[in-house]
Simulated scan of single mutants.
Amino acid sequence: MSAWKQKRFWQQADAVPVDGGFAVHLDGRAIKTPAKAALVLPTKPMAEAIAAEWDAQDGVVDPLSMPVTRSANAAIDKVGPQHREVADLLVAYGDSDLLCYRAEAPQELVDRQQAAWDPALDWAAATLGARLSPRVGVIHAAQPPEALAALSARVHEKTAFQLAAFHDLVSLSGSLVLGFAAALGWRDADDLWDRSRVDERWQQEKWGKDEDEEALVHVRKAAFLHAKQFHDMC
């Protein structure tokens, strides 16, 4: 038997100021999260985006067509209650950051990595106070504790909403540095996504594209771009 699906029952969705931020009302009734918490958003643009998603529903409600709503729910129900754990998970990316593990050969790939990744590491040193060191090969080598401490402080100070978006920026790119670069607008999100895919693009040029893999990459890039937009809304 198919699962029950919610159908549209409201005429209008509105962003409404409330104590602590903004809510979304359906015909005057406040939306709650899946865990039955109050859906209180930090900014009006986020509330308006969520209201627009609910207004766009026609017939059966499709959660997959409501990315801002889903991200806000995750921030409240999942990230908020375990903020420290999520932040620690993301800080760990800094000690094994994608940008720091370089190929020994061929020289063309070495040059591509250097061109795409060195400017990001330089930006992190200047802007975040964290100089991460590249190394050749895939064997882990710890980064300077003072650099990781600087990055950790910045991650832990993020709100639950920011951290929900930041989680996807980091995990999808594989890089804490690129996550910060996206969040702080060092380069646009498309550029940063391309920097995270240097190795994959090299492999494609040598061995050709895999259609299934390309479809998955398309989904992941869309999620990365959404995470950037959601972080900006915070």
Rank of each mutant, 00 (worst) to 15 (best):
M1D: 13
K5H: 15
K7H: 15
F9S: 15
W10I: 02
Q11Y: 02
G20A: 10
G21K: 08
V24P: 00
D27V: 06
I31S: 01
T33F: 08
P34D: 15
P34G: 13
P34F: 11
A37Y: 07
L39G: 01
V40Q: 03
V40W: 03
V40S: 01
L41P: 00
P42M: 08
P42D: 12
M46D: 03
E48L: 05
A51K: 00
A52N: 09
E53T: 01
A56D: 05
D62I: 09
M66G: 03
P67S: 10
V68Q: 01
A74F: 06
A75F: 03
A75W: 00
K78M: 10
G80R: 14
P81G: 05
H83F: 06
E85A: 13
E85R: 10
V86S: 04
A92I: 00
D95I: 07
D97S: 09
L98A: 13
L99M: 11
L99P: 00
C100R: 04
A103Q: 08
Q107S: 10
E108S: 12
V110E: 02
R112F: 05
Q114K: 14
A116K: 01
D118F: 14
P119D: 08
P119L: 09
W123T: 05
A124T: 07
A126M: 10
L128A: 04
G129A: 08
A130G: 04
A130E: 00
L132E: 06
S133K: 07
S133R: 11
P134T: 07
V136E: 04
I139G: 06
A141D: 09
A142M: 03
Q143L: 06
P144V: 05
E146F: 05
A147M: 04
L151M: 07
R154M: 09
R154P: 05
V155Y: 00
E157G: 15
E157D: 15
Q162Y: 05
Q162A: 08
A164H: 02
L169M: 10
L169S: 01
V170A: 08
V170D: 00
S173G: 12
S173F: 09
V177F: 03
L178M: 09
F180L: 03
G185A: 10
D188L: 11
A189S: 15
S196Y: 04
S196W: 04
R197W: 03
R197M: 14
E200T: 13
R201D: 12
R201T: 08
R201L: 08
W202P: 00
Q203N: 13
Q204S: 12
Q204K: 11
D210L: 12
E211C: 01
E211V: 13
D212F: 13
E214H: 09
E214C: 14
A215P: 00
A215Q: 10
H218E: 15
V219G: 02
K221V: 06
F224P: 00
F224D: 04
F224L: 14
H226C: 08
H226L: 14
A227D: 10
K228T: 08
Q229H: 09
H231N: 11
D232F: 03
C234I: 02
